[in-house]
């Protein structure tokens, strides 16, 4: 397509240049009937050529579209993605309720297997786009849309919300980790499990802080009494590579800063700042970072 378009561009510019050179050299405009009819024929030929080229491109477009859209297979992994301002909620579907898994912002997929993403939104319109894996599909509240994709090579693929969704549209990056089937199965099994129980004193204290402060009003940690669904599920937060949909790398330091004031790194996002005593904050971070 690029080649065809480049050739067309060169041809049109060539004709323009020749016309200009001719036009500048000629003494008198040729306006007799014979000259006009030659010009009309030339225009007709050019238009015909245009139509033929456009038809070629149209057919190429249809064939590619068919190939892209015909990735249907029965062994597909189905993931429900729900868009929020400004993060991604992900559920791995399964017929058995206890085999479902919930995570946020970072999904894993097996290499070489078709994936179907079922997309919807809780608030405004978002668009799921991982450039190296698939095209865009909008997440529209009130609708469920779907898109198919398949990774042929393992790797971590960065994505991006592609429909303007408000103030933090720029910081809404999903990550897709494509890995071999057995790795993927292990990962999925770990995500299905309830959260790890706190093992040290600090972690136990941190869990108490989590459950008794405002954290539990918005977040879920499966295996504890925290089960709110306003913000991302934190059951396995330590297994994720980034915080706040690709805004920060997931480290202790970032986590502490993020909890204290989320608006430093992602201004105007919807998480409120939290004023915790230093000891409580450290314990909370220790607990969250233990949730592998």
């Amino acid at each position: 397509m690029l080649i065809v378009c480049t050739v067309v561009f060169v041809l049109v510019m060539g004709a323009l240049t020749v016309a200009l050179v001719r036009g500048r050299r000629s003494r008198l405009p040729a306006t007799d009937a014979a000259a006009d009819s030659r010009l009309h024929t030339a225009v007709g030929i050019a238009v015909t050529a245009t139509i033929v080229v456009l038809f070629g491109l149209l057919i190429a477009s249809f064939i590619t579209q068919r190939a892209v859209e015909s990735l249907h297979a029965s062994s597909a992994v189905t993931i429900d993605i729900i868009g929020h301002q400004w993060w991604w909620e992900a559920h791995y579907e399964d017929a058995q309720p206890d085999r479902r898994a919930t995570t946020a912002n970072e999904i894993h997929i097996p290499v070489g297997r078709p994936i179907v993403l079922k997309l919807t939104s809780r608030d405004v319109i978002h668009s799921f786009w991982v450039p190296s894996l698939d095209g865009k599909r909008d997440l529209i509240p009130g609708y469920t849309t779907a898109i198919w994709m398949q990774a042929d090579r393992p790797g971590v693929y960065r994505g991006q919300c592609a429909e303007f969704c408000g103030r933090r549209h720029a910081n809404m990056a999903p990550f897709v980790t494509a890995e071999h089937e057995d790795q993927f199965d292990r990962w999925l099994a770990s995500q299905r499990a309830a959260s790890r129980a706190p093992s040290t004193e600090a972690e136990r204290h941190g869990q108490q802080v989590f459950l008794t402060s405002s954290c539990a009003l918005c977040h879920t940690i499966r295996g504890t009494s925290a089960s709110a669904t306003v913000g991302p599920d934190l059951t396995h937060i330590a297994s994720r590579g980034s915080l706040a949909a690709g805004t920060l790398a997931n480290t202790r330091e970032h986590m502490a800063r993020w909890i204290e004031d989320p608006h430093v790194n992602k201004p105007l996002n919807q998480m409120p700042p939290n004023s915790l005593a230093g000891g409580d904050l450290n314990a909370l971070v220790a607990y969250l970072e233990s949730l592998r």
Binding site: A19, G23, A30, T31, L39, V47, L54, L57
Partner: peptide, 26 residues
């Protein structure tokens, strides 16, 4: 969307033909 390139093309070709057969002053 592809079809609408045709009438746009017709105009471009007509303009080029006009310059081709005219006396162009720049």
């Amino acid at each position: 969307s592809i079809m609408i390139a045709i009438p746009s093309g017709v105009q471009i070709f007509c303009w080029i033909a006009t310059m081709w057969s005219g006396r162009v002053s720049m």
